[in-house]
């Protein structure tokens, strides 16, 4: 039964990931006096891309063809480590906290390589910016993970979630909220949102993530977009489940699962609303101010870890 539920979680990640993108688009549209897309639009876009043919440069190597599959499967593997509304994940084990970061790094490595593959300058631009920013974001993410792992006493994601769900709400203290701040900033960077990157822009010279996938079309592009949405969803799930894990189902009774699922959905959409709120109210930062933002995230993570080590849990 556990197995079925864990697999169901992954299937749900696949299904729900685009809807978070839709929600953020809808919020932004409403703030601009527009109606915005319906929820079916995001799925229809993915479906349309899957049906279209692909145009691949004959100068491209195997990396270009393989990358979308590698990216998508690494995102799925990372998804199999994160519990959503049920207490255990499919492949969770002790130490999977670090593996999560490196699955995403694997996907990112191939993404940046494939961007350089066709030899266009836009791809090189996007890839160099992505590498610079993620070289700052990954340490911040890992450090905040370590801070949380220290508090929970375990290096597995489901272990951390379980530990926090058993604690009373208010003792989740100052130091873990610093880790929350750090992870929230990293979420903005990883999901490519304003103030770091504008997902809706048409200006290639300003793009970070989009510039790397300019050469893709058809099925490959659909997989890349989907993998990006899954990554965004995973970060939101981590934030929600680690920092407000109450309501997580630990039995397999139908009613508990249903309640836990709905509660989880509302928390996800609530956090997505916060992301949309920030997107509406700020302009994109100048490229070389983003490292300052990431330095703040890093400092938060360091304070969180050191604070817990010195002052105690």
């Amino acid at each position: 039964m556990n197995l079925i539920l864990s697999i169901a979680q992954i299937v749900l990640v696949l299904i729900l990931a685009p809807s978070v993108s839709w929600w953020i688009k809808k919020i932004k549209a409403l703030s601009q006096n527009r109606i915005g897309p319906t929820i079916l639009q995001v799925y229809a876009d993915l479906g349309k891309l899957f049906q279209k043919g692909m145009v691949i440069s004959d100068q491209a190597s195997w990396i270009f063809r393989a990358m979308p599959y590698i990216l998508f499967s690494s995102a799925l593997m990372a998804a199999s480590l994160v519990p959503l509304f049920f207490k255990s994940s499919l492949l969770g084990f002790s130490g999977d906290l670090i593996l999560f970061v490196y699955f995403l790094a694997l996907g990112r490595f191939f993404l940046t390589l494939a961007a350089l593959d066709t030899g266009t300058t836009f791809g090189g631009m996007g890839s160099s910016r992505e590498m610079a920013l993620s070289s700052l974001a990954e340490p911040a993410l890992l450090l905040s993970f370590f801070a949380l792992a220290y508090r929970a006493g375990t290096l597995s994601i489901e272990g951390i979630v379980l530990h926090f769900s058993l604690e009373a709400p208010f003792p989740i203290l100052f130091f873990t909220s610093m880790a929350f701040g750090s992870m929230l900033i990293v979420t903005f960077v990883e999901s490519g949102r304003i103030p770091v990157d504008n997902p809706a822009t048409h200006l290639e010279l300003t793009m970070i993530h989009e510039a790397m996938i300019l050469e893709y079309s058809g099925r490959c592009l659909a997989l890349i977009e989907w993998a990006h949405q899954i990554k965004q969803f995973l970060f939101l799930s981590l934030l929600v489940n680690i920092f407000s894990p109450w309501g997580l189902a630990d039995s397999t009774m139908g009613i508990h699962l249903l309640f836990s699922f709905l509660f989880f959905l509302s928390k996800i959409f609530g956090l997505a609303f916060v992301i949309g709120w920030v997107e509406i109210h700020t302009a994109k930062l100048r490229l070389f101010r983003v490292p300052d933002l990431l330095a703040i995230a890093f400092v938060f993570a360091v304070i969180s870890l050191l604070g817990q080590l010195m002052i105690g849990r």
Binding site: S31, Q32, I194, T206, A283
Partner: peptide, 16 residues
């Protein structure tokens, strides 16, 4: 200009 710095709200209102 507002659109190019990705401040969607401002540019939508001015476009209106």
């Amino acid at each position: 200009v507002v659109l190019d710095v990705a401040f969607g709200f401002g540019s939508a209102q001015l476009a209106r």
